[in-house]
Amino acid sequence: MSSLPDYPDGLYRKIAGRRVTLFCGHYGSGKSTVAMSFAAMLRASLPAGTPVAVADLDIVNPYFRTKDCEEDLGRLGIELIASEYASSNVDLPAMPESAYRITEDRSLHTVIDVGGDDRGALAMGRYASALLAEGDFDMLAVINRFRPLTAAPADAAEVMREIELACGLPFSGIVNCSNLGSATTPEVIEESFGYAEEVSRLCGLPVRFTAVMRGLCGSFEEKTPVLPLDFTISHGGIENR
């Protein structure tokens, strides 16, 4: 991707507004793709000159991660905050020192891609008190009906509770990112709305938006706001689809 894509009118107002947005959830649900696409939407919506960053704070995933899209993000004018060891040849679950900018630099609009499940979310605890003190963040749970371990709404809700306990921050909403990779069709997404509503009912939080590959966005806007997804994560030339 070399230039910012278009977004539906008013999308920013409907789904964003906080300085820091965290995306957490079961690994493989689509957090990284959602985080990068959300950051691109912020970049397109916020006034020119407002700094926007994506923080890859995943300490779990060895590859196929936000860091693999560093060049794409750079071209769009989105800063990447990531450990220098991310996507490298060593297995160091380290947090980058630049992550302190997320809480210290209050002019920076940051989208945080948190690692999978409670194990990945544990590291966020380091920043929890500062985020709570400022009170200008949104923590959203990314769910995917087609991931076997969270295919039951109750299991998805359980993962959300485990994440909250691990990082010490409360969720404020749900992102339905139900997809089957390259086999995703409009019917697949249609099928997931009931699932997302059930997860919403179980945890008492609203479905804030549905995240859909741009080519499939179609007419889902009647049900929830829709964030078009624009990134394909490729590692060593192999696409994750």
């Binding site: 995933n61 590859y63 192999i238 689809r241």
Partner: peptide, 10 residues
């Protein structure tokens, strides 16, 4: 190999 283990597919 690692790619096969880490990649996601339907």
């Amino acid at each position: 190999d690692g790619t096969m283990g880490q990649m996601m597919e339907p």
